[in-house]
Design a protein around this nucleic acid. Structure first.
Length: 307
DNA sequence: GCATCCTGTCCCTCTCAATA
DNA sequence: TATTGAGAGGGACAGGATGC
C-alpha cells in the first residue's frame, strides 16, 4: 500500500463503509489523542474516478480531525493515508474491523473457526480481541445456539438485532426445544404465534423499532420452569448454581494462602512469558497454514502485538 | 496419571445513556 | 449535576475432555 498525504477536501465518506455503532466517549478520547500526538495510524482510502478518495477505514479518525479543523483551520492541512484498491474496499474494511464491528453471531463464528480449524487457543483469541476469557465463553455459547439450529438459531438472530441481550447465551442453552417454545410462548409472544413473533421482532428491529428485553427478564423467563424443559436434571443444575452462590456469599471460604510477593511475581512473569511464547507459536501456524487472507492478517497482527 | 484447557454457572462492578 | 437503570464484561468455582 502506498502512503500519501491528502487534502481533507479530497476525502469522501461512504455510509456503507462507516461504523454501525457509535461511542461518544471513545470519539472524544480519539479527538483528544489526535490533538495531542497527531494521527498515529494513517487512514485507508481508495481512489475514485473523480480524483477524490473514498475513506475505506478511518471515518471516525476523519470525523475527529474535521472537528479539530473546525476549531483550528490551520490544523491537519493534509492527512496521512494508505492508498488501497477500490475493488477490495470491503475486504480491507472488514479485515480492519474483524473484531470491532461484527455481530455477535459473526464473532461467535470467527472465534470457533480460529479455535477449531486454526487451533488457536481461546485465551489467545480473547487477548487478541480485547475481552476476558469469560466473555469469550459467551461467544462459544452463541455458537452452540447456532449449531442447534431452528428456534435456537433464531434466538441468536434476535441477539444480533438487539432484541435479546447476547451476554448470557447459557440461559437459553440449558433449555430443551420444548422448553424454548414454552419460554417464548409464555413470556415473549403475548398471544402471537412464535414464528410470527420472532419474524416480526427481527423485521421491526431492522427498521429501527427495537423492543429490547433485559437480562433479568431473560433470566426470569428461562429459570424456574418444570424440570422436563431443561436438558440437565435439576440436581446437576443446583450443584452448579450453588458454586456461584457460595462464591458470592462467602468469599473467604475460597481464599488461598498468600505466597511471598517476590516469588509469586517471578512465577507470574515466567507464566506470562510462557503463555506469550505459546500464543506466538500458534499464531505463526495460522499465518503460515491458513488459506483465509483475513485470518492471516489477524494472526500476523496479534503476533506483532504480543511480541 | 497429570497438566492443561474448556464448560456452565453464579454474582459483582463498571460504563454509559437517559432522566429528574 | 446527580441519580438511575441496563448491558457488558470480569472473577471464581468444580468437573469434564483431551493430550502428553
Amino acid at each position: 500500500m502506498k502512503l500519501v498525504n491528502l487534502d481533507p477536501a479530497q476525502l469522501v465518506v461512504s455510509h456503507e463503509l462507516s461504523r454501525s455503532g457509535s461511542a461518544k466517549q471513545f470519539e472524544d478520547r480519539l479527538r483528544s489523542s489526535i490533538e495531542e500526538i497527531g494521527l498515529a495510524e494513517p487512514i485507508k482510502v481508495a481512489p475514485l474516478p473523480s480524483g477524490q478518495y473514498l475513506v475505506v477505514d478511518g471515518t471516525m479518525r476523519l470525523r475527529a480531525i474535521t472537528a479539530i479543523r473546525d476549531a483550528n483551520p490551520d490544523a491537519f492541512k493534509t492527512i496521512a493515508a494508505y492508498v488501497t484498491d477500490y475493488e477490495r474496499r470491503f475486504e480491507i474494511r472488514y479485515q480492519t474491523d474483524i473484531y470491532q464491528d461484527l455481530l455477535p453471531s459473526q464473532l461467535a463464528a470467527l472465534v470457533e473457526h480460529l479455535h477449531k480449524t486454526e487451533r488457536v487457543r481461546k485465551t489467545d483469541i480473547a487477548r487478541y480481541i480485547g475481552v476476558s476469557p469469560a466473555t469469550l465463553r459467551n461467544y462459544t455459547g452463541l455458537w452452540r445456539l447456532l449449531q442447534r439450529g431452528g428456534l435456537f438459531a433464531k434466538i441468536v438472530e434476535l441477539m444480533d438485532v438487539g432484541v435479546i441481550p447476547s451476554s448470557n447465551p447459557y440461559a437459553w442453552l440449558r433449555l430443551t426445544s420444548d422448553g424454548l417454545r414454552c419460554v417464548l410462548k409464555d413470556s415473549f409472544c403475548d398471544g402471537e404465534s412464535i414464528d410470527a413473533w420472532v419474524q416480526g421482532r427481527i423485521s421491526a428491529a431492522r427498521q429501527g423499532n427495537t423492543l429490547r428485553f433485559t437480562t433479568n427478564f431473560v433470566e426470569a423467563a428461562t429459570g424456574g420452569l418444570e424440570p422436563r424443559f431443561y436438558r440437565q436434571d435439576e440436581d446437576l443444575r443446583s450443584v452448579k448454581r450453588d458454586l456461584g452462590l457460595r462464591r458470592a456469599g462467602d468469599p473467604q471460604l475460597f481464599d488461598v494462602p498468600v505466597t511471598p510477593a517476590v516469588k509469586s511475581k517471578t512465577e507470574r512473569n515466567s507464566r506470562v512469558k510462557r503463555d506469550v511464547k505459546t500464543a506466538v507459536r500458534h499464531l505463526s501456524n495460522v499465518t503460515r497454514e491458513s488459506r483465509e487472507p483475513v485470518l492471516q492478517t489477524a494472526a500476523r497482527s496479534l503476533r506483532k502485538y504480543l511480541q
